[in-house]
Amino acid sequence: MTSPTATIYHNSRCSTSRKTLELLRAHGIEPTIVEYLKTPLTRPQLQALISASGLSVREAIRSKETIYQELQLDAANDEGLLNAVATHPVLLNRPFVTTAKGTRLARPVEKVLEII
């Protein structure tokens, strides 16, 4: 029997992302790791990931990042937010995890249990 497949959109500097990766591994899942800060997602990839998670674009954004304030994204629509995240991947909340059962933003970490 093979272990379930998963992809984690990971930032190794984020404790929640590291804990989510540990949780996946504790359940016998060695996910594909996408370090989205090193290999940013395209705008269509971002849109698909966020849509699959069931979140709004705004819910998937890290509004406490300095660049969020600098770009004055409080008033931005979804198109503006997606463009900002495509240009500044640090704005994407983390970690997102995808499996055959769905996509979740693992905040809190235990949200990933819904899809493994």
Rank of each mutant, 00 (worst) to 15 (best):
L82I: 02
A60Q: 01
M1I: 15
V90S: 08
R43N: 10
N77M: 06
I50S: 04
I8F: 03
Q72G: 13
K19H: 14
Y36E: 08
P89E: 05
T20Q: 04
T5W: 08
F96V: 00
K38R: 13
Q45N: 07
D78T: 08
D74I: 13
P95E: 01
N11P: 13
V57Q: 04
S12K: 14
T7A: 03
L23A: 14
S63L: 09
E22I: 11
R43P: 07
R13S: 08
L49N: 02
A100Y: 11
D74L: 11
A6F: 09
L91D: 14
K19Q: 15
A6H: 09
T42W: 04
T2Y: 12
L73P: 00
E30R: 03
A48I: 01
P89V: 03
S56E: 10
L46K: 04
T7H: 04
A60V: 01
F96Y: 02
T42E: 11
Y9T: 03
L91H: 14
D74A: 11
S53A: 12
A100H: 15
R94A: 06
H88G: 02
Y36N: 01
E35M: 01
S12M: 09
S53C: 07
Y9H: 08
G102L: 10
P95T: 01
T2I: 14
G102E: 12
E79S: 10
L71M: 13
G28W: 09
G54C: 05
P40M: 11
L55A: 04
L71F: 12
L23H: 14
K19P: 03
E30H: 05
K101E: 15
S15M: 11
E70S: 10
E22D: 15
L81D: 12
A6V: 11
F96Q: 00
E35N: 07
G80H: 12
A75N: 15
E30P: 07
K19I: 09
R25P: 13
L92H: 05
C14L: 10
R62K: 09
A84S: 06
L24G: 07
E30A: 04
K19G: 05
E30F: 01
S15N: 12
D78E: 15
G102M: 13
A60N: 01
I50L: 05
A26I: 14
T5F: 13
N11M: 07
T2R: 11
R58E: 02
I50Y: 04
A6P: 11
T87Y: 07
E35F: 00
T2K: 10
P40E: 13
V85R: 07
T42K: 07
T32H: 05
A100I: 11
H10P: 10
T20G: 05
P44Q: 09
Y9S: 04
H10Q: 02
S51G: 12
E59D: 15
Y68V: 03
T66K: 14
A84C: 11
L21D: 11
T42R: 02
E59Y: 06
P4M: 04
P4I: 08
E65A: 07
A75W: 12
A48C: 05
A60E: 02
L24A: 07
